[in-house]
Design a protein around this nucleic acid. Structure first.
Lengths: 128, 128
DNA sequence: CCGAATCCTACATGATACTG
DNA sequence: CAGTATCATGTAGGATTCGG
């Protein structure tokens, strides 16, 4: 199993650098914002949330909405987002299988924040 | 060189991306927020901005304030932040040389946004 | 004091093929 | 349809050393 998207609890503000927690893909961080920025900075993650903001989507729909993403990476991202409780996975028991993903309440609250960043970028840094 | 650039057509309302811009991110993105998330998600970047929020700091001060960072990486980050006009670099002509970094107006406006993410994380995702 | 120049490794991402 | 399993590769981030 490939899990370079493990979760972890980070101490807020210069906590003791406890290494007893499972390490994440990158490096131990002390700041929650830093940690989430790293997570959201991973490719596709923010985009997936963006798409799901309009309502639930199936795996195939997401794949089609994200041209260039590979099934492996899409699975990884969905698992990561699910693990962080930003999205919810629902599987039907029919055939063919239908898996649906939708934002959790927490995932929804994240949208406006990213939106702010987007607005800021448009205003202040549209051209780098 | 990596030439298997998949062409993507997603248009979320993106800022046109100049190809001559120093792409610090791993991949070309179409969304400004996505791009900035990737940038800010790079290790140390947000933390450097955080530290500079309290006022100008010298290279050595930053290095000491960021335990574990190597001079190379610190230079890279400072260059990246400078290139994106988030911080300003000032060099004195004395000896020994004194280089000072401070937030630009744009860099300052970014702070509150990251703060929002921090608050969100504390509320909704403190324990993953 | 403030970096630049090398070298190195882990990880993030992708390509491709295959399965319940 | 909704994913795994392998395999490959660029690059981010770090260790170390040297220079102005």
């Amino acid at each position: 199993m490939n899990d370079h998207e493990t979760q972890r609890i980070v101490t807020i503000q210069m906590g003791s650098q406890a290494n007893d927690t499972p390490r994440t893909a990158r490096h131990p961080t002390e700041c929650l914002a830093e940690d989430w920025l790293a997570f959201l900075g991973h490719r596709w993650n923010a985009l997936i949330l963006w798409h799901l903001a309009n309502g639930p989507m199936r795996y195939g729909e997401l794949r089609d909405a994200l041209p260039g993403i590979t099934p492996k990476v899409l699975s990884e991202r969905l698992a990561g987002l699910t693990g962080r409780l930003l999205i919810l996975r629902t599987v039907s028991n029919g055939f063919p299988r239908e898996t649906s993903y939708q934002l959790t309440p927490q995932g929804s609250t994240l949208g406006p924040i990213v939106l702010r960043l987007y607005d800021w970028a448009e205003e202040n840094a549209a051209r780098i």
